[in-house]
């Protein structure tokens, strides 16, 4: 399939991190799985990085 950039110079710009995170953190999953923070002895690991970031600085909202 051919690449189909949007007109008006919208697509060629570097993707904004926030738009990426909207998709990668809030969706984009094809696996069911909960937050797991270690890979040891776990069949399948899925890490919710937003939760990870939040847990580091509970007093500060996540920056996105």
């Amino acid at each position: 399939m051919e690449d189909e950039p949007l007109p008006g110079g919208v697509a060629p710009r570097q993707v904004a991190l926030i738009d990426l995170l909207d998709r990668l953190l809030a969706s984009g999953a094809v696996l069911t799985g909960d937050l797991v923070l270690s890979i040891a002895d776990v069949d399948l690991v899925h890490i919710d990085l937003r939760a990870v970031i939040r847990s580091i600085e509970p007093d500060h909202p996540a920056p996105w």
């Binding site: 399939m1 690449d3 993707v15 990426l20 990668l24 953190l25 969706s27 984009g28 999953a29 094809v30 696996l31 799985g33 890979i39 776990v42 069949d43 399948l44 690991v45 899925h46 890490i47 919710d48 990085l49």
Partner: peptide, 24 residues
């Protein structure tokens, strides 16, 4: 993650995985 997904998406239909999906 997005770069790899994009590389495949340009060629075919893909199911993007959620970020940080790791198998042992």
């Amino acid at each position: 993650h997005n770069a790899v997904v994009e590389s495949a998406f340009r060629e075919t239909t893909v199911l993007p995985m959620r970020i940080a999906t790791v198998h042992p």
